[in-house]
Design a protein around this nucleic acid. Sequence first.
DNA 1: CGTTTTCTTGAATATGATCAAAACTCGTGG
DNA 2: CCACGAGTTTTGATCATATTCAAGAAAACG
Lengths: 201, 201
Amino acid sequence: MTRDMHCTRLDPGAVLFRQGGEARRFYFVESGLIKLTRLSVDGEERVIELIRHGGTFAEAVMFMEHKRYPVTAVTVDESVVLGLSNRRLLDLLAQDGHLALRMLGQLSMRMHALVQEIESLSLHDAGYRLVNYFVGECKRSGSTSLTLDAPKRIIASRLGMTPETFSRLVQRLRGQGLIKLEGAVVTIEDLDRLRARLTAE
Amino acid sequence: MTRDMHCTRLDPGAVLFRQGGEARRFYFVESGLIKLTRLSVDGEERVIELIRHGGTFAEAVMFMEHKRYPVTAVTVDESVVLGLSNRRLLDLLAQDGHLALRMLGQLSMRMHALVQEIESLSLHDAGYRLVNYFVGECKRSGSTSLTLDAPKRIIASRLGMTPETFSRLVQRLRGQGLIKLEGAVVTIEDLDRLRARLTAE
DNA sequence: CGTTTTCTTGAATATGATCAAAACTCGTGG
DNA sequence: CCACGAGTTTTGATCATATTCAAGAAAACG
């Protein structure tokens, strides 16, 4: 009926919104994969975050005075997203007193992650960041292997390095017998030795 | 009476809380200057944010499940801060429905800044970040000069570079007649030419 | 298949870090 | 007022990491 809530299926490469555009709605990911990117003046693109099933994004912007998206959102895989208008969100917040607290919690987690990212970028080298990513993904899934669910060049950008560097570092880890790589599946061979790199060195 | 709200005067170098510590309260800065830093495993420190008069910090953490400070807070100058307990904040939120929205707004701004920082770190070089800082400070104050209100080594860390690099870059800008430096006061000589560096190059 | 994009590998380069030492600042006490 | 010492800043020389450019291999796509 109203247009303040709508569910859409999107092809890969579809643009949900652009950095700097007026923020009218925020999104919930039903399925698929969305990349949030930031463009520099000279057109370089950096992936800030990857959003998967169950994730929300752009919810933060709704509460700013100048409602402009700070990032561009583009689908990586075919995705189904639920969009909610600014207005609708405010209604929901009014109805449910706890929702605001839950959102504050969400944003806090997000901020925490961003702070970690900044630390990582300025205090650690690319090798560290890559290993940290592998170890982190394994911890999340509880498994000893992980699937790169986006093109490597996207992951590389997400980790703040070029595809070339990413490739070289992966090769090196392979050469040291720490990981195995079959297509998009990374298997950790020696998790302990990998973890050790994050503390010592 | 209760200890859920207290105002303190602090000498320079005082530690308000440490990264990883249990988050019991958040803070409001009456006067002075606070640095929020992040420590890497090998003890390197990176300044994430500088908080001045009127600023709040650590308010985000209150809403997370694992309430642990993600940064360390240390006074740079003598400062007066107001501390509010977790409990007290929740009371205030219950009383004032709009407060939650205002806080969401605050956090959004903060997140926006962090995203910008990540972009800046991965897409731009140190020279860009320095100029960007100068231009940004001037825009904020409306003036054509700015005072470095913290030791240069702190500013350098905030900008994600070493003191040495900071010093060298400032010298270069001076040599090009773009800025003037007298003690801690930076005067912009040629704002247009400085701004031009942020777009082109 | 042919075409396009992604990935890998190599060589050269550059930016910023590190190490080291000198110059400067500033507070303290003789 | 000057000397001293701790901390900060500047400057120089060297070095390392990651980027860039280029080209070939592999994979994805129609």
